[in-house]
Write a protein that binds this DNA or RNA. Structure first.
Lengths: 238, 238
DNA sequence: AACAGTTTGTGATACTTATCATAAAACAAA
DNA sequence: TTTGTTTTATGATAAGTATCACAAACTGTT
């Protein structure tokens, strides 16, 4: 990854991303001088679906901001089981989690759709924080929102039975990610299992149940939610 | 709670807590002027074991720092089930989680031992962040560490079976909290269940198993870990 | 088009965990 | 001390979930 960054850094990309969270963090608070550090060091890199972005143990040099696509942040435990911590979408800061608490990435990140990721040097972020209090407040807010989401997600998953979990995650993709009743699942059934803490077989089985109950339509990766009301009831009551 | 703060604020307590995290945040970076906001608004309040400190829905006006004792942060879900998110000990900032992302507390906090809590007005924390970049960096670090711990904890719990979870939590109390092989459990079996996501009966049952297997000694709330090695193996392998 | 490899899908079964019932012990209050 | 209430404890059983086995469908490659 590091080499990729250096290679592409030469291009000298400029801060032109519409609605960029960084823009919001900086330009609102620092209309005149603010962008100097961040724009200078910002690099955009495209990753193909499935490509690795960050590996556990890598040195933390950059903050990541997702311009487009979809990524997953996941842990690999000793017995090689993967636990997906979060799926992050455009304009999420992923991996704010331990950027300020650690020198090395603790978890892994990979693209689950073709994605464009914006890398901003941590050193420059720190300089900005030191020089600009409003930026610091905004950053505290983003960090807070990001961890809050993850913690809330764990609580939501843990209190549900398997049917409730599958309903929860299907509604998550439909409402939060694709904003449509029809969508292409960006992850395998195995990855869904890793995200909601159950086995692959049971994810498949329960999705089949929903299909038989005429709640969803399944065409391999293509899912259509046909009955939101019932799926929501299952999400709430299991 | 609000009335208590006002009542005690009159006393004008001073920043004299040894090893206080706030001291570390402030005085290292701001040797001369730094304490003005925080010390002025800081209030210490004692809570008895079992007392409520923060309720979900309360307006966020203060940051909490635990001077001594032990507290739990927990969520109450719709069906009135409680999920304990974290147990915080002296010099932890509890509830950093959504101080910067929300105007209202999302979770509940109560004392699980007699505790002294330091309240610092959020407004003054924000003033400090705006005026002092090093303080901001330190705060980002503390927030990052706090959420990181919680997220890591969820991952650790979720990947274990019930015996592994009980082993994990007993070792947590012994090593992290009391730093002793003998300790008095500050929580009921029901609360342990809420912390590691299982039923009260199974917590009791598995603790009995450990007793029968001569791994621990139980005298109601008093626990002695007699065989760390075996308990650690159970924690790792279930 | 054919092949190998992976993912999806389904059933049978074993294992884990929750629920229900009931009793003993601990605790709090009169 | 007695009484009532909560917590701890144990067993039996039911429900939920994982594991194993195997087939079908899909994917990428030659």
């Amino acid at each position: 990854m590091e080499e990729q960054i250096k290679k592409k850094a030469a291009r000298g990309s400029i801060c032109d991303c519409k609605d960029c969270v960084l823009r919001e963090l900086m330009f609102i608070h620092v209309p005149s001088s603010g962008s100097k550090y961040v724009c200078k060091s910002k690099v955009e890199i495209k990753f193909n679906k499935g490509e690795n972005i960050i590996s556990s143990g890598d040195e933390i040099k950059n903050m990541l901001c997702i311009k487009d696509g979809l990524i997953k942040i996941y842990n690999i435990s000793k017995n090689n089981k993967e636990q997906i911590i979060s799926i992050a979408k455009p304009y999420d800061f992923s991996y704010l989690i331990n950027i300020f608490s650690n020198n090395y990435y603790k978890y892994n990140i990979s693209a689950i759709e073709d994605s464009t990721i914006c890398f901003i040097s941590i050193d420059n972020i720190k300089k900005m924080v030191l020089e600009n209090g409003s930026f610091a407040i905004s950053l505290l807010n983003k960090l807070s929102v990001a961890s809050d989401k993850i913690i809330n997600n764990f609580l939501e998953i843990n209190k549900r039975n398997l049917r409730g979990r599958v309903a929860y995650i299907l509604l998550f993709f439909s409402k939060e990610i694709y904003k449509s009743s029809v969508f292409i699942l960006p992850v395998s059934r195995k990855e869904i299992a890793e995200l909601i803490d159950m086995t692959t077989e049971n994810v498949i089985r329960i999705m089949s149940e929903f299909r038989i109950e005429d709640i969803i339509r399944i065409h391999t990766k293509e899912i259509e939610i046909k009955d939101f009301k019932r799926l929501e009831i299952i999400m709430e009551k299991g």
